[in-house]
Amino acid sequence: MPRSIWKGAVSFGLVTIPVKLYGATEEKDISFRQVHDADGGRIKYRRVCEVCGEEVPYEHIAKGYDAGDGRMVTLEASDFDELPLPSAKAIEIVQFVDLDDVDPSYFAKSYFLEAEGPGAKPYVLLREALAESGRAGIVKVALRSRETLALVRAKGDLLMMHTMLWPDELRDGSFAAPPAEIKANPAEVTMAKMFIDQLAGAFDPGEFTDSYREALEQVVSAKLQGVPMPSTSSGPKDAEVVDLVAALKASVEAAKRRREEAAKAEGKAAKAG
């Protein structure tokens, strides 16, 4: 069981729910060490103080704020623990919103909320009320030395919390939009929607895998065993100017064939079983 990273309480109105917070995700990337390419030796970094020149153990490294005028303020761990901030140990729901009203661009990290002791009954109450109303709670909470906006929602038997970026942390992406004079004609849009319909289905994350990580694992395994490297697939071809309607029509037909073949395969598997 993972360790909780935060303890506090969720409150809505006069109802308080003691909770623990757990990380809901973990990264599965392959980790590498920095090495010297000539002999494979590991690269090490030393934490050296620029004043005394001594190497500093990690436990003696504090956080310093540079005031910009030559002054440096050193903050201890206790300074962060004793912040005069209401959200430091409490998650107060300040607004309820429809889930569809929140742009996914704001979401940062996901967490599980676990009720503690007498918090189980009000936890279930909040979970059921959110699920039946189709809404989520907007909160502010202090995590990892910063206050963040967050959203609390019901998912199955759980309450989950998703930290969110502040509005000024989202960049303006208008520079990436195509020129306004470029338009798609009705026939192209209709054909594109037909292709979308052919690939439409219920989202099942279990159907997808990290192909990049799998390919990287093959390369690492080949190097460890001293065998030839796996063959590489051909890269993408240069884009060509084509008839969009014709290309989409061909795509729709190909998607139909794939679905028919998949349905036949499932039928054979069902008969065999």
Rank of each mutant, 00 (worst) to 15 (best):
E207D: 12
M164Q: 09
Y212M: 09
G173N: 12
G156R: 11
P178A: 04
M191T: 02
V189F: 10
K256E: 15
N185I: 05
P228I: 07
E214C: 01
V219Q: 03
L199H: 02
D168K: 05
Q225F: 05
R213D: 00
R153M: 10
W166F: 10
D172R: 12
L224A: 15
A154H: 06
F175Y: 07
P186G: 11
M191V: 00
A262V: 01
A239K: 14
A184R: 12
V189D: 08
R258G: 06
R259K: 14
L158I: 02
D238T: 06
V220Q: 03
V252K: 05
A255N: 08
D243N: 13
P236A: 08
D210R: 00
P230N: 09
D238K: 13
E169I: 05
L149W: 12
L151H: 08
L170W: 04
P178E: 05
L216T: 03
L159Y: 01
R259H: 09
G206H: 10
A192N: 12
D210F: 00
P228D: 13
A247Y: 06
F208R: 00
T163W: 07
K155T: 09
G226Y: 14
A154T: 08
L216W: 01
P230E: 07
N185A: 10
E240Q: 15
V241P: 04
L159I: 02
A200W: 13
E261Q: 14
K237Q: 13
M160L: 15
F175R: 09
L248A: 03
A254T: 10
L216V: 05
K264R: 09
I196C: 06
E240V: 15
M164W: 06
V152F: 10
A154L: 09
P186Q: 12
V219H: 01
T190Q: 14
K223V: 06
Q198P: 04
S251V: 04
M164H: 06
A180C: 05
L149G: 01
S234G: 14
S251D: 09
A254N: 11
P230G: 08
A246Q: 14
G156I: 08
R213V: 04
L199A: 01
L248N: 05
P178F: 09
P228C: 11
V241G: 06
V242S: 04
M161K: 07
F175V: 04
